[in-house]
């Protein structure tokens, strides 16, 4: 039970770090995909969506190769931090960011794309600088997209399995997340403990999605229909 709590703690840390990184990195990406007409966008869009259709093991396999100490990435990481990248918590974070990318980027991108250009232009002519426009207009008007993206990315990272197993292994206290711990219990025929973790994940994920839909409901109603 003690090790299960440890796994829960690691899982929450992983999901939290992943979500924070996605907020920082995924937001500009979503802006580019949602608002730019640059041709690079047509290449990036399917790339971002890939994790939705690929088996996690495919991504995990290539990330494992990229993280090994004899690659450029693995080597620079080792000189910078002194540790190997593969089978570390940091490797899990990188993998999760890539794997959960579409779950954050797509709702935010959709919210950005549906922002009326005229509103942003009006704000500009009223004296709002680009940064000002982001915080005073874009952020509040895209609120539902941000909430959806954040919840989905967090929930999706909680349930990650295949990619974790490939690049993180199963190191207690370092890379053993809830889904791996659950797998271990099943392997060891400890169905009672497995059930506790499985039911916990199930209920938490449901509650999160329930809250997400509830939050988005009032934002949908006072639309054009209220006149």
């Amino acid at each position: 039970m003690d090790s299960d709590l440890q796994s829960l703690w690691i899982t929450l840390q992983l999901a939290g770090a992943t979500t924070l990184l996605l907020l920082c990195l995924g937001t500009p990406l979503a802006w580019f995909l949602g608002r730019s007409q640059h041709p690079v966008r047509y290449l990036l869009e399917p790339l971002v969506a890939l994790p939705i259709v690929l088996p996690p093991t495919v991504m995990g396999f290539y990330l494992l190769l990229a993280f090994s100490p004899d690659t450029w990435l693995g080597q620079s990481w080792q000189t910078l931090t002194g540790n190997t990248l593969a089978f570390s918590f940091e490797a899990l974070v990188i993998g999760s960011v890539l794997y959960s990318l579409p779950f954050y980027v797509q709702p935010v991108q959709l919210a950005f794309a549906s922002l009326p250009k005229g509103l942003l232009e009006a704000a500009a002519t009223l004296g709002a600088s680009p940064v000002d426009r982001f915080f005073s207009l874009i952020l509040p008007l895209s609120k539902s997209g941000f909430i959806a993206g954040t919840c989905l990315a967090f929930a999706h990272t909680l349930g990650e399995f295949g990619i974790v197993l490939m690049i993180g292994g199963n190191i207690p206290g370092e890379t053993r997340v809830l889904s791996i711990a659950l797998y271990d219990h099943v392997e060891a025929m400890q169905y009672g403990q497995a059930n506790r973790l499985a039911a916990g994940l199930l209920i938490f994920s449901f509650l999160l999605l329930f809250a997400l839909y509830a939050l988005n409901r009032p934002a949908r109603n006072p639309g054009p229909g209220t006149q």
Binding site: G118, A123, T125, L126, G127, S129, L141
Partner: peptide, 30 residues
């Protein structure tokens, strides 16, 4: 000089009011 640094007022065919703000807040924004 970007639009936010030009001392202009621009009104188009669409009023472009900020939907997350009420009337007074729209005026206060400006």
């Amino acid at each position: 000089i970007p639009p936010h640094q030009r001392s202009i007022g621009y009104i188009s065919q669409e009023p472009q009011l900020f939907p997350h703000l009420n009337t007074a807040e729209n005026l206060a924004f400006a």
